[in-house]
Amino acid sequence: MIPYDFEYYRPASVAEAIRLYGGLEKQGKSPVYYSGGTEIITLGRINLVKTGAVIDIKHIPECQVLGFEQNRLILGAGLSLTKLEEADPFPLLSKTAREVADRTSRNKITLGGNICGRIFYREAVLPFLLADSQVVLAGRDGIKRRSVHDVCNGNLRLDKGELLVQLLTERSYLELPHVSIKKRKQWETGYPLITVAALRKDDRIRVAFSGLCPFPFRSVELEEELNRRHVPLKTRVDQAVRRLPSPILNDIEGSAEYRIFVLRNLLEDVMEEMEGK
């Protein structure tokens, strides 16, 4: 039960969505784009999200695209995670997405919703960070493409009223060797203690993380350390840990020092597996 009212809009085009946002903003309705909407509903019911209008972008054709164009995979932000898993155009994404929430919830959770969410794990972005993808954004000044790193690495950097429409990924990245591992506090349920996704490109191993810091990230400095092949693995892992951004999460899922312990083991496992692949 959401204890306040909002208006509901269902634009049919990106332009209409942007126009609606501008107009509603002017009316003081603090509009939000609504994709899967799971977070708006669950945070809304406890007043952590307040809005006077939701703009449902799921019915915009561009947000539902799943296909290839010029050797690039285009994924609409309104696609549900299970749809992506079943179509499986990007196996690493399928694996990472599969660990988000649970299957029924993922019928509703969308790619864009997960990546632009307030709940800071945003695990679906990890594969795109590793694949140097591009994001297609729509805003008052039209459509633009930007590197996923500029917008989604670490804290989300979207301008007010800007809409994530699509993610573009070079085909050459889709079938690269990869792993995705989610470690939880206990067994198989719950938020990540740490989620790591890794990809090998040109004999270099790329890694991105969620659950370690209050944002998902990929760090070039950290990858540098891990890829010094002449150095023993344990030493590389030690050096990589020193390159972590801050703060390290210290919450009910696990203490910061325990997360580092788990991370060390994880990095060893990931490197051993990726170097073997």
């Binding site: 909407g37 799971t38 509903i41 939701v54 919830s105 019928n107």
Partner: peptide, 13 residues
């Protein structure tokens, strides 16, 4: 044809 949690969905959807 999909299971959905009806608490996670607006009726208008």
């Amino acid at each position: 044809d999909l299971p959905m949690k009806s608490c996670l969905m607006l009726a208008v959807e």
